[in-house]
């Protein structure tokens, strides 16, 4: 350490609050994206999961489930796409809990910045990761016989719905991340949230085949609406109110989850 004058050497830049919210979000997004490629576990999950899901469901259940219309591959792709997006969006919960445990969130809170923007970084990286996983999934689907009827504009809508859904689940998963005390805890919390929602849905079997109670749940819960909307766009099954319900659900989740995140994030300050 040669210089002895250490105070006030570097001056922060002066900009508006809003400018910094965007700038800091961008810094955190860059960080989270870097993490995808620096963390081999994330990278492997990103590539292997869609391949495995697609092949297993296609060949294990393919012969056993009667879709009442479309071939099982055609039926399945929408379900797997959404299930994968939901599980992928749980990455935010692990990342948030990790940041809390490591003391990173504490440190950020001692900075003169809007430190909640760290959450934005994790959420946006889920979007990116899910986008890549979805492309891989579709590529595999085509290889095992997927024959969609969607037009280009249908595909754009599919992409938008998947992104909106991912965005909603990621913020929910940020809530879990802020609530959990450990990585183990957040793992089972995420599992309890996503597993029933994706399996008790129209993802892998038509809801008509389910027992009454389960069927009522499965037909009306958000994940089913998202799946049916995507399925309709991809293979031309009737869309009904699924499109509009999917969007309403996702927006509602986002409108609840973001303020909840803000509350929980700030509450941490006063709590422990």
């Amino acid at each position: 350490m040669e210089e002895t004058k250490m105070v006030g050497l570097y001056q922060p830049q002066q900009h508006s609050k809003l400018y910094w919210i965007f700038s800091d979000s961008l810094t955190f997004i860059k960080r989270s994206l870097k993490l995808i490629f620096r963390n081999p576990d994330q990278l492997i999950g990103l590539i292997v999961q869609p391949i495995m899901f697609m092949l297993l469901f296609r060949y294990v259940f393919g012969g056993a489930i009667d879709t009442g219309g479309p071939s099982y591959v055609n039926f399945l792709v929408a379900g797997i796409l959404v299930q994968m997006a939901a599980f992928g969006a749980l990455t935010t919960s692990y990342s948030v809990t990790y940041d809390m445990q490591k003391g990173i969130i504490d440190r950020l809170k001692s900075f003169p910045i809007a430190s909640w923007t760290v959450l934005t970084g994790h959420v946006v990286s889920d979007l990116f990761r899910n986008f890549i996983s979805s492309l891989i999934l579709l590529a595999v689907a085509f290889l095992v016989g997927f024959q969609p009827t969607a037009s280009l504009s249908d595909w754009v809508l599919v992409a938008l719905i998947v992104m909106l859904f991912t965005f909603a689940i990621s913020w929910l998963s940020a809530v879990l991340g802020l609530l959990a005390k450990s990585i183990e805890a957040v793992q089972w919390m995420g599992f309890l949230l996503v597993f029933p929602l994706t399996f008790a849905s129209a993802a892998f079997a038509p809801t008509e085949s389910m027992a009454t109670g389960l069927r009522i749940f499965a037909q009306n819960q958000p994940v089913t609406h998202v799946i049916e909307a995507i399925r309709a766009l991809m293979i031309g099954t009737p869309i009904g109110n699924h499109g509009i319900m999917a969007v309403i659900w996702c927006v509602a989740i986002i409108l609840v989850a973001i303020p909840l995140c803000a509350y929980l994030f700030n509450r941490q300050v006063s709590k422990s």
């Binding site: 922060p12 504490d106 900075f111």
Partner: peptide
């Protein structure tokens, strides 16, 4: 204002392990 004038090093090195 306090945050603009402090540096904090906590008990556990608060770093991003993968970076």
């Amino acid at each position: 204002e306090v945050r603009q004038n402090i540096g904090l090093t906590s008990q556990y090195a608060a770093l991003d392990e993968f970076l």
